[in-house]
C-alpha cells in the first residue's frame, strides 16, 4: 500500500503507467463511444412522446453526470494536494478543470438543443439547467484563477481552496435553485415525469455513461502527462524521453 502511494508520487512512474493505461483505454473508450452512438441513434425505438429528439439523451445525460462527478474528482485531488502536499494530486486537479468545463458545456448545449423540439424553447430557467450553468461558472472560476497566478505552485493551492469551497457550496446551490424553481415554475412547460425507462433505451444509455467516465479518465491522464512534461522539463527522465524522440 505505502509503496504504491510512494510510486504514485513519482512523476516518471506515473508518466509510464498512464502511457500504458492509455494505450488500451483510449481505443476502448473511442470504440465504446462509437458503439453507444450508433446503438442509440440507429437501433433504439423512438420515444412515444418525444419522437426522435429524445436520442439526445445518449450524450446529454452522460455528459451531465460525468461533469458533476468531475467536480468532485477535482475537489478531492485538491484536498489531497492541500493536506498531504502530493504534487501529483495537484497535477490531477489542474488537469480535471478544463475537461469538466468542456463536458458541462456539452451538457448545456445538448440540453438547449433538446429543449427546442420538446419544450418549444432553447433555454428554460429550469432547476437542473440553472445548476449546470452555475457548475460551468465554478469550473471556469478555477481555470481562470489558475491562469491568473504567475507562481504555479500557489495557483494550484489557491485552486484547491476554491474547489473545496465550491464543493461545500454545490449541494447548497443545487437545493436552493431547486427550491427557487419550484417556487417560480411556469405552468406552460410539462416535464416528462415518468422515471421508468425501457431496457431497450436504458442499455445504450448505461454504455454511454460508462464510455463518458472512461473518456474523462483518458482526458485527465492526457492532460496530466502534458502537465508532467512541462513541470519536469529540467529533470533527467524527461530529457531522456526527449532524446529517445518518442
Amino acid at each position: 500500500m505505502w509503496s504504491f502511494l510512494h510510486k504514485l508520487g513519482s512523476p516518471p512512474w506515473l508518466y509510464a503507467i498512464s502511457g500504458s493505461i492509455l494505450r488500451w483505454l483510449l481505443p476502448l473508450t473511442l470504440l465504446a463511444l462509437a458503439a453507444g452512438v450508433v446503438w442509440g441513434l440507429l437501433f433504439t425505438p423512438p420515444d412515444f412522446r418525444q419522437g426522435n429528439s429524445y436520442r439526445i439523451i445518449y450524450i446529454h445525460v452522460p455528459a451531465a453526470v460525468v461533469a458533476l462527478a468531475g467536480y468532485y474528482v477535482m475537489a478531492t485531488a485538491g484536498a489531497i494536494s492541500l493536506i498531504w502536499r502530493m504534487k501529483m494530486a495537484d497535477v490531477a486537479m489542474k488537469a480535471a478543470a478544463p475537461v469538466g468545463a468542456a463536458l458541462t458545456f456539452a451538457a448545456l448545449f445538448t440540453g438547449a438543443v433538446w429543449g427546442k423540439p420538446t419544450w418549444g424553447t432553447y433555454w428554460v430557467w429550469d432547476a437542473r439547467i440553472t445548476s449546470m450553468l452555475l457548475l460551468l461558472f465554478l469550473y471556469l472560476g478555477v481555470v481562470v484563477l489558475y491562469e491568473a497566478y504567475e507562481n504555479k505552485e500557489a495557483a494550484g493551492k489557491a485552486c484547491a481552496v476554491l474547489s473545496l469551497v465550491g464543493t461545500v457550496n454545490i449541494p447548497i446551490i443545487y437545493k436552493s435553485v431547486d427550491w427557487w424553481y419550484s417556487l417560480h415554475q411556469p405552468a406552460s412547460i410539462k416535464f416528462t415525469g415518468d422515471s421508468t425507462i425501457d431496457p431497450s433505451m436504458l442499455y445504450p444509455l448505461l454504455l454511454m455513461i460508462c464510455a463518458f467516465y472512461a473518456l474523462f479518465t483518458c482526458c485527465l491522464l492526457l492532460n496530466m502527462r502534458a502537465e508532467l512534461l512541462q513541470r519536469e522539463a529540467r529533470t533527467g527522465w524527461v530529457r531522456k524521453l526527449a532524446r529517445g524522440g518518442e
Binding site: 471556469l140 472560476g141 481562470v144 484563477l145 500557489a154 476554491l162 469551497v165 447548497i172 446551490i173 437545493k175
Partner: peptide, 25 residues
C-alpha cells in the same frame, strides 16, 4: 485568493458570484 494578483478586481467577481446564488435566492 486574489489579493496577491494585480488584476484581482474582475477575477473576484468570477469566483464569488456563483457562490452568492443561494443568498440571492
Amino acid at each position: 485568493l486574489t489579493v496577491g494578483l494585480r488584476r484581482g478586481g474582475m477575477l473576484i467577481s468570477l469566483l464569488v458570484l456563483p457562490l452568492y446564488v443561494p443568498v440571492l435566492i
